[in-house]
Amino acid sequence: MDCIDPMKELQLEDVEVQLLIEGLYRRYGYDFRNYAQASLKRRIHSFLKVEGLPSISVLQAQVLRDRAYADRLLMGLTVNTTAMFRDPSFYMAFRQQVVPILRTYPFIRIWHAGCSTGQEVYSMAILLQEEELYHRCRIYATDANEQVLRTARNGIYPAKQMQEYTQLYLKAGGQRTFSEYYTASYESVILRPTLRERIVFGEHNLVTDGSFNEFNVIICRNVLIYFNQILQNHVHELFYNSLCKFGILGLGRQETLRFTKYETLYEDLVKAEKLYRRRS
């Protein structure tokens, strides 16, 4: 009788995933080797489905020979979901607890690591403008994916999202009318150019690139969830070394330093919002 053992099938698939990931790294230097497995596997499977490919092995053969195809896969493997003022209570806490600290600095450097299409960065720019601190800031907004960075630089977003963003802006403690920050044109809105004035967008890969400056604040939300613990520790080392003394680290709502080696090197600034402060 012809019968596929489901366990063997599963092990075979794990081998295929590993080979694909190893191939991407050896051929192109794209390093997904320490990404969290479960979500990576889901992404690979949905890519197979969209492309109508029968197996990971077939995908691998194609990816190794065709760079354009590999780039397409790359887009498929990373998750770029984001929003302006996502988790408004985070921005509220930033306004109330972090801004007073920043006021004491003559010049403020902020790093948004894994900024995706930029909404998070522009939200911060709006907040800092309203607090009249923006002119003293420089925001470095980085991502490993150049395609999302292009969108981020343009600051053009679908108009249909503005209703949701407006709600979130208000919950985040926004002090003006949200529509002051953009100009609508057909189906899109263009964010006010002054928001971009103090932002530098650039490509930076948290796995393979090192420290490039010293910051007062590092924000990295919903990026580390895609990494395993080995890689998380690696990135936390990078963040620790890139923060100045008493610098502030902001993680995503369900992210924590608790399961990393860096827990004791920070104190909680706002525990519920995952705002930490470097101890020394």
Binding site: A36, S39, R42, V79, T81, Y226, Q254
Partner: peptide, 19 residues
């Protein structure tokens, strides 16, 4: 948690904001 997918790895959980 609200608005996150919950994924099981071997021995621990991961979260994601995939669509």
């Amino acid at each position: 948690p609200a608005d996150y997918h919950l994924l099981v790895e071997s021995g621990y959980f991961s979260l994601s904001i995939d669509e």
